[in-house]
Amino acid sequence: MNRVILSFYALLIAGLPLAGLINALGYSVGIGGPLATGFTTQYWQQLSTETSLLVSLAFSLYVAISSVGLALLIALALVLNRQRMLRRWPFPALLYVPLLFPSLVVAFYLFQLLSGSGWISRMVVALGLTQTPADFPNLIQDGAGLGIISAQVVMAFPLFTLLFDGLYTDARLDELRSLTRTLGASEGQFNRKVAAPILLRRAAPTLVLYAIAVLGAYDVPLLLGRNYPQMLSVFITARLQRFDLADLPMGYLIGFLLTVGLMIVIYRTTRWTQRHAL
């Protein structure tokens, strides 16, 4: 009985994604896909000419690191400096609100709020601070990815706050705080040298997984991002949905490499956190 359940579980968790990965590899070497003509390494060789891919990878890393970095700074500040506020109604309930919305809804909300013809822009025009909506600064579909980062931070910081708050209680940091204060450490020293390292190390696997999810996010960068540079998932999807079927192998190759790369990152992070567990 357990074996049946285990097989079913393995098929869902590992088998199907692995089959997809093998399929993508098959496309990338010309043995799968609508126009496959037999084994070839031409797409792998062409990879070095894909400069847009490198730009896309760098932009995605920048967005993922910035979003997760900002969100965790906000969450750490709240958990370490605003413990009382976190326990006072309605703050705990409000923290759950952004978590209730799908990412596309958050992206659309920010689009309506921050676009050139959005609510803030119209208010600014009505107040006479700008002449036309076009004078409003580019906060979405901007070169620095501010719109994408804002959306990701709005969705991530409540989750991180709840996570850190749980870990704070588990690690009995309040008691440690009293102890370090008794030993003469300042509030800032306790936060920097004791609490933050403990929370970050314990939360590391979740933070890395979240960063990977941001790296692979599709709907937020599609709505709030530019055509160039594009985040990886938008870049790959565009390749897979182009009008030219001959583009499919390269799209699958990039998707394959990205998946393998992220699997290695997850594996290494898991090993690292196991070795340095607190």
Binding site: S115, N138, G143, N227
Partner: peptide, 22 residues
């Protein structure tokens, strides 16, 4: 629009920009 730094990826987005007067 936007000094040509970006172009709408979907027609629905352009329709929305038109409807909003952007």
């Amino acid at each position: 629009w936007k000094q040509g730094t970006t172009f709408p990826e979907q027609l629905a987005t352009l329709h929305q920009l038109f409807a909003n007067g952007e």
